[in-house]
Amino acid sequence: MTQEISPEARKAWMSLLATAPEARLAALFDTLDQTPDHETLRAPEVGGVMVRGRAGGTGAPFNLGEMTVTRCTLKLASGAVGHGYVQGRSKGQAERAAKLDAMMQTEAAAEVEAKVLSPLRADREAERTARAAKAAATKVDFFTMVRGED
């Protein structure tokens, strides 16, 4: 049984899974009560994506260099098709991401959200906040010296 899902919501969880630390995702995945069997539509495959920038930050695009990405597509018995696109070269991670993407389209969505996505989101937020806080501590406070002639 497939539920209605918005592209924005799916984009958000796929993006979260793409950058999740491998060991952390594997550990969270193992906390799920059960994971459905699947049929592999596209076996995990490692490839490259050309990352582009813009001249001057806002101008015409140029090719900056590639990054490694691993992708996988699978189908659950219920018919839900899951895609995994993850940074790096972990085939296990791509398969887990695809499985979770498929499960998010089924009744298991609430459990995946609670046990996997929500902790990942909290981790990411905490890490970003910690870095931003360290950066903020290195912000320069200027002060003007008192001039002698006054």
């Binding site: 994506v49 990352v51 870095r131 931003a132």
Partner: peptide, 29 residues
């Protein structure tokens, strides 16, 4: 790198949205 299949090209990255660890300007205080 030459052994990797090319999956595609990214959208140009938005450096204005960068989460900055460092950011300095030598022209404006």
């Amino acid at each position: 790198r030459t052994t990797l299949p090319r999956f595609g090209n990214s959208r140009p990255v938005e450096t204005a949205e960068m989460a900055c660890d460092r950011r300095i300007s030598a022209t404006f205080k």
